[in-house]
Simulated assay, not measured.
Amino acid sequence: MKLATLATAIAFALSSLTLAANGYTVKDSLHCRSGPGTGYAIIKIYKKGTNISISCQTPGTNVLGDTLWDKTSDGCYVSDYYVLTGTSSYVTRKCPSKYCVEINQRGIDLITEFEGFVANPSPDATGLPTVGYGHQCQTKGCGEAKYKFPLTKATARELLVNDIPSYTKCLGSCLNNVSLNQNQWAALTSWVFNVGCGSAESSSLVKRLNSGESPNTVAAQELPKWQLAGGKVLPGLVRRRAAEIKLFTTASSKKAYPACQ
């Protein structure tokens, strides 16, 4: 009996040492949130001196110069600034992105309004064959669309919804230091849908968001720069950018990037 008790005590001590070796100390009372940013809901609070385990790390809201956030074994996120990891860099793997693959209804409505409905494949204003609500044909006759032509507005909307993930994937891959709500995410998706992924990736808009500037300020200043087609300002693009800014700056409590709610 004594040997069994001793073995149990040793096992407990070893497990405690393992936790201490793999864990990191919280240097102050710290909120653990539902996502990597100060705008996310507080899930729990760690007391100063608590030893936590970090499952992965990801960029998030800038906290006193540190944009790294740690996902704990409790499944919530803390600012790495308040965790004694011994470095300001990654100490474990990067968290998989959980951004919203789809966009909200406001975003879908905005895109359909400005793309306009086309029942059969035909060249758009730039000469590219499109159908539905801005679907660019990838094969002859738009065979990849998998819908009968002429499209109805309902099937065109379905096609648009199917297309959206390729544009949100573009956004998710080029953003790394910003927290966006679902209206902001939808507005930027509309913009990428219009200008293309390559243009978005190399844009000053994305660079400024990644540098930690205020998203609303960046959107208001950068989106109006994308009003040209063929070197000329198009009234339709002026209206579209204004609508995207309006949607972007409309408050929403639902998050979209880097964690979806």
Rank of each mutant, 00 (worst) to 15 (best):
A7N: 06
Q138C: 06
V218Q: 09
L64C: 10
G60L: 02
N120T: 15
Q184E: 09
K27Q: 05
T72Q: 10
R239D: 13
N181G: 04
C197I: 15
L19N: 03
H135Q: 15
Y133C: 01
K254L: 12
Y82L: 04
E144I: 02
V83A: 12
Q57Y: 01
T139F: 06
G141I: 06
G75H: 05
L205I: 09
T58F: 05
E113M: 10
S79R: 10
A13Q: 12
K255R: 13
Y82R: 11
K140D: 15
S73I: 13
S29F: 04
S15P: 08
L159S: 11
L110E: 08
A154P: 00
T249D: 09
G143P: 02
S179E: 02
S97Y: 02
K225F: 02
T58H: 07
I45W: 05
L180W: 11
C142P: 01
I54Y: 01
K98H: 07
A13L: 07
T250L: 09
T112D: 01
S203K: 09
C32A: 14
G143L: 07
P258T: 08
T8C: 14
P224F: 00
R106P: 04
R239C: 02
N210S: 03
W69N: 11
A220G: 12
Q221A: 06
S29W: 00
R240V: 04
C137N: 03
K254C: 15
K27S: 03
K48P: 08
E244H: 08
Q57E: 03
T38K: 04
K146I: 06
D109W: 11
P165D: 09
V63Q: 07
A20V: 15
L237M: 00
Q57R: 00
S88Q: 11
S53C: 00
A13W: 07
K255D: 14
A242N: 10
A125R: 06
L128W: 15
I54P: 04
D124V: 15
K98L: 10
I245F: 12
G231S: 06
G86W: 03
T25M: 03
A156R: 03
V91K: 10
S204C: 04
E113A: 12
A154D: 08
F193R: 03
A200L: 12
Q227G: 01
S166T: 13
A7T: 11
R93L: 07
A11T: 10
G143I: 15
S122N: 08
D109F: 01
Y167G: 05
N120I: 13
Y257H: 14
T38E: 03
Y257M: 01
G172S: 08
A259E: 12
Q261P: 15
